[in-house]
Design a protein around this nucleic acid. Structure first.
Lengths: 356, 356
DNA sequence: ACACGGATTGCAAACGTTTGCGAAGCGGCT
DNA sequence: AGCCGCTTCGCAAACGTTTGCAATCCGTGT
């Protein structure tokens, strides 16, 4: 074991004081004389005293940890989400002296089992949960167990008394549609996923709501989907969309990774972006800036969001039983080169059809 | 506080046994009767008992944590390093039941101070350190304090008895040179950083060694550098290289971020890659695949490396005082479109000059 | 002289484990 | 009957804190 650092007992003996007084002096308790406090703090500094946090936790019941369960990921991914998220979370927690507990999930265990262990063993005071599924057993457990937690993302049930921060991607998808509609597009494609994540639902809903608001019967929307991390299936779905009978002039990816794939398949099919096809994504991953002609997308502000999530969690842990906290952050549109006016021919066709 | 989960005391009372026996039964101690052990495990399962780890740590002296200090980062970066690294680390630690402690550094504190606190407070049994500087105070502290730790990267002093895993980027840079030389390139540029990180040194050295091995006086190398996260300075340095009197035909970036910037500035200067200029990077960040014509680079295998680092750290913590562990992983070349034969004109000029 | 009150300090319990050592029970042997 | 040894279990200390309560000291007012 690492050579133990100085303890209260050592300090107390050296100062000829009781452990109690030393403890109180360091805690800034006003009942200890100013002179004594000075002696104690001086000695503590000299001895390099740092309190043992396990011991403190045992009596205080607080661990000073916020937990995050490390998602199990496929072999590879074009995604800086995790790094940005954890960086932000760290920023949000740092100011309150809270550390981050990253619990990896062993191959044979479920994410819920890991979460349970972290909580029941008293390792963490609060939890942050990302990638919310429509039926999320983790959320169910945390609520029942009355553990302070904050979700990155929302539940479908808006009335549930839970704390969350979400990027308003529904509205963003609506904005994307409006922008593309103004540019003359009428035939839309959406590349989605089959996984039952709430964000899929919210984004599709946002898009459909915007379409409905417009009230233009000429607007068409074709939705294709593939399992989240199944690249081959996504390629097949996108190719189906691009080579279908009524190829859309504008395709929206549920997130950048899919939109980038659309860019790739479009190039492969000889389609020029944005001349023949407009493409819009969501997230603003780094690669979006590099893929020609530059992917138009929305910045999810992951890092900033995570920072706020950290702060929310801290305040949740401090005053238990308070009202749940909610926060909707507005994603920033990032206009690059992958969107443009609908192809002339299409516009002509449309006009032709709309006045027969 | 979170409602406490069941304790040994509760179990003991319920089973009419002593705490000692219950503890031993759950630990699989053979001195408890088989029948008793069964009763205990059954009750433990029924009560959902999970041992309090703070209490266990207090007596065992082990926290079950590996610590990683969250680097403070600039406002943005094209980098998936952190996410991949932590994912891999999690994988390496998970099988041994070790959790990851991510310590964020408060704005007014140094990274070393955070590390000190984590260690002295007994929060972690071991540490992993990345981004090794030539003079690294963190490493100095950990060695002196005899804390088990593993570095991602190396010290310049090869003889120091410390554990590390590093990607052999020096050799990779040599390979890059050899490949480009075979393609006819003779005038090389290296875009480096001014920060005194050991990997800068190793990569430059690897490149220079390969040049020396070749023993061709016609080979030229111009090195430019900028502070690590200063994009404007990097742009200026690269532009200087590209518009200098003896523009290189091949430019190597110390890492992908710089190589991608070279691609950008080359396009800006009207240079075609790889026709007029070859560019090679290192790391294989996701964006490298998207930036046209595809950045030729080396895969740093971050995730796999991190997994091994996790395993190394675990074995280091288990048997203290063992020999330091070292591991050099060979980076995979990823050949894409950004390298090619040296421009014809250049080759002609070279031939002309070499036989006057 | 005595009581009182405020300032300062210490005692001891508690948090939930692990573990060295001793005790009890019991069967078999002499 | 007495002893031994094995199996099974419990007592109590220890890990390093925090904290309610009591103790001490000292000065002041009556």
């Amino acid at each position: 074991m690492v050579q133990r650092s100085s303890t209260l007992k050592v300090l107390a003996e050296h100062l000829d004081l009781s452990i109690t007084t030393v403890s109180r002096a360091l805690a800034g308790n006003p009942s200890v004389a100013a002179r004594t406090r000075e002696r104690v703090t001086a000695a503590a500094r000299e001895f390099g005293y740092v309190p043992n946090l396990a011991a403190r936790q045992l009596v205080s019941g607080r661990s000073g940890f916020a937990a995050f369960v490390l998602p199990v990921r496929g072999p590879s991914y074009v995604d800086s989400y995790l790094g940005e998220f954890l960086t932000g979370l760290g920023e949000g927690l740092a100011t309150h002296g809270v550390d981050l507990l990253l619990a990896p999930v062993q191959p044979d265990r479920s994410e819920l089992a890991v979460l349970r262990h972290v909580i029941e063993s008293g390792r963490a005071d609060g939890v942050v949960v990302a990638r919310i599924a429509e039926e999320d057993e983790r959320v169910g457990y945390l609520r029942e167990r009355r553990v302070p937690f904050v979700m990155h993302g929302r539940l479908l049930d808006e009335t549930a008394p839970v704390s969350w921060l979400d990027t308003d991607s529904g509205t963003a998808f609506g904005e994307a549609f409006d922008m593309l509609y103004e540019l003359g597009h009428r035939r839309f494609g959406l590349v989605s996923i089959t996984d039952r994540m709430t964000f899929r639902h919210l984004r599709e809903r946002g898009l459909r709501a915007a379409i409905a608001r417009r009230g233009d019967q000429a607007v068409e929307l074709e939705v294709v989907a593939a399992p989240r991390f199944d690249r081959a299936a996504a390629v097949a779905a996108i190719d189906g969309l691009l080579h279908g009978p009524r190829r859309p002039t504008a395709v929206i990816g549920l997130f950048d990774e899919l939109a980038l794939l659309v860019l790739e398949r479009a190039a492969h099919a000889g389609l020029r972006v944005p001349h023949d096809l407009s493409v819009v994504g969501f997230d603003n991953v780094p690669a979006a800036a590099y893929a020609p002609p530059g992917l138009t997308t929305f910045d999810a502000c992951t890092r900033r969001s995570a920072k706020e999530i950290g702060e929310m969690l801290v305040s949740l842990v401090e005053d238990r039983g308070g009202e749940p906290l909610r926060r909707l952050v507005r994603p920033e549109p990032v206009l690059r080169g992958s969107h443009g006016p609908a192809p002339r021919s299409e516009r002509a066709v449309r006009r032709g059809r709309s006045k027969p």
